[in-house]
Design a protein around this nucleic acid. Sequence first.
DNA 1: AATGAATGAGTTTTCATTCAT
DNA 2: CATGAATGAAAACTCATTCAT
Lengths: 192, 192, 192, 192
Amino acid sequence: MTPDPPLRADARRNREKLLVAAEQVFAEQGVTASTEDVARAAGVGVGTVFRHFPTKEQLIEAVYHARLARLADLADQLAASADPGAAFAEFFTTTVEGAATKNALVDALARAGVTTDSPEVGQWVRRALGVLLTRAQEADAVRPDVTLPDLLGLLVGTSRAVEHLSDDPAARVRVVRVVLDGLRPPGAQKVD
Amino acid sequence: MTPDPPLRADARRNREKLLVAAEQVFAEQGVTASTEDVARAAGVGVGTVFRHFPTKEQLIEAVYHARLARLADLADQLAASADPGAAFAEFFTTTVEGAATKNALVDALARAGVTTDSPEVGQWVRRALGVLLTRAQEADAVRPDVTLPDLLGLLVGTSRAVEHLSDDPAARVRVVRVVLDGLRPPGAQKVD
Amino acid sequence: MTPDPPLRADARRNREKLLVAAEQVFAEQGVTASTEDVARAAGVGVGTVFRHFPTKEQLIEAVYHARLARLADLADQLAASADPGAAFAEFFTTTVEGAATKNALVDALARAGVTTDSPEVGQWVRRALGVLLTRAQEADAVRPDVTLPDLLGLLVGTSRAVEHLSDDPAARVRVVRVVLDGLRPPGAQKVD
Amino acid sequence: MTPDPPLRADARRNREKLLVAAEQVFAEQGVTASTEDVARAAGVGVGTVFRHFPTKEQLIEAVYHARLARLADLADQLAASADPGAAFAEFFTTTVEGAATKNALVDALARAGVTTDSPEVGQWVRRALGVLLTRAQEADAVRPDVTLPDLLGLLVGTSRAVEHLSDDPAARVRVVRVVLDGLRPPGAQKVD
DNA sequence: AATGAATGAGTTTTCATTCAT
DNA sequence: CATGAATGAAAACTCATTCAT
């Protein structure tokens, strides 16, 4: 799934451990968490972190990319759904709820459009989301004037809103419904 | 407008300069910008920054509070409007657009609920927004089930979305419309 | 003597202390000595070192430049001498002996030709040495075919030789005499 | 020629590859070049470097020794020459020019006197150079007061000078001539 | 044996905060 | 009071050396 040069089995395993640990630590303390904290959480030495990610910036990017990859993956899976409107809503809700405890996802999403390195992941996300959106629009489940950038912006924003309401599940549900309702075509009746 | 102890004229002027400079610098580089950068932008020495804001944390808080104060002020002005629905929409749009180039506003808003020090500003904002929201709901311009926390969350989130679309004005307009539409009562016909 | 922006009195004093300490420490341990060692030797905190020299590289350069400045200064003083040949020999000997316990001088000299930053110092050294050399050649005290680069090379090399013989004063004298003899015009009788 | 324990053919080959690579890398970047750089240049893993040279220090020493061995070898060959003065001059010139692009040779030479481990190489060099020097002095081609340490110092120094003039062949020639002239007995007429 | 990943002590560098000027 | 130099704790990064594969 990650288009990296072939690594030794143990190295790949450590890379995964690091990504998981970094995601966790960054979610808890923000990306200002120290590299040593990440190393400790992964159960490796700092040196190992820097062997895999020569710069903290690169570690952060890698975490974002991993998230984007999961997102694109989810979008791909749902694209096959028989009900494009439901697929779209499910994707939106899942993504945005997934961010509730992982604030960095917001930033990851924010980069889907402008990722500097390994632009393939960004393209993958955009393509997968594009399919989901277009199908939903063809099924008259989503306003026809909404574009892919709009959708990315709304995902970023709604994730942020949901994150902000992390301790109020009912509020989260209402907020997501507001945005999804807003995304319906003008004529459509609201679900309520 | 700021509930601080009375200061000498020049001291107050420095405080203002600092707040403006800090808002600018934090908007550009994030709150991780160094205190010296802020001092330089304000044209003063670091010492002066620390005289006014004994801690960087307090400087950040002060910047947030200044923003919240402007927000509450705007809400107060619009509360008098004859058309509560329009007032609500205008407040929402203005706030959210104001954040387009100032990402830190998002965080300021995010704190409206949980501000640690000088809780009065938070209360002021909540009261002012509460009035705006309630009137709009009474005028059947906003869903009745939306609460004040929901609104804060949506402001935060939509600001973030708008910030993310900072270089695409048309997309920003669409995104705000989506959210405002979503906020209308179920029965209401969409504007579009 | 150093063409730097005006500094506060205490700052300038610390800069001097640092340069002296760095010269000392680098002479003893080589330029791989840690910055903290330099700070300790100067009796200041590391932060102070980095305020004055944002990079270790820059600190090293500064030490070199200070040495080159002293060199140029000496050359300037001797340029006024009535006996150009003696002046030249004295400059050569003094310079080269001064390097006996300070290996880094060699590198400083080595940079007189190719100094990247503050090229003024390099120019100053070259101009001052050029005067000394030309006068000695006009007085028939030095081979006419020797150029300024040759002289710099010989200073570097002889300093290195002298450094290598640091514990054998008699050998140092012989070695310097060999080079100075070699620098005399072909016809000249050796002093012995 | 290298007094090491017998190795398997492939191991010996790796040892050679490493020595060559290390010489190259150290010449380019100085001995502070990382061990991984050396390994990469040799086309082997770091582990292999440390199998052959348990310490970086030992690798450096080995590089020096290889150079010294080549030097002693050259001196031995020239010792048989019919013209001791010419042999001496050729040895001096060749050695010193050989250092032009390999700054580390300077340090190798510098250690000919004080080599800590495998002192045999140092002795070998000193014996071979001693013969060359003594014969030249007996043939009245070199000052009688010059000692072996003097000669080592001059080789080190002139190598350094030549290295410093690495991009100016004519200057190199002049500088070497200056030193060789200086080494002639007082009465001798200069060649020039 | 060779390989290259992991380790962690040691260095460089940053920056909030203090304090002499 | 303002200033900006000094401080030092903390963070980022390097690299000789070890060790699992």
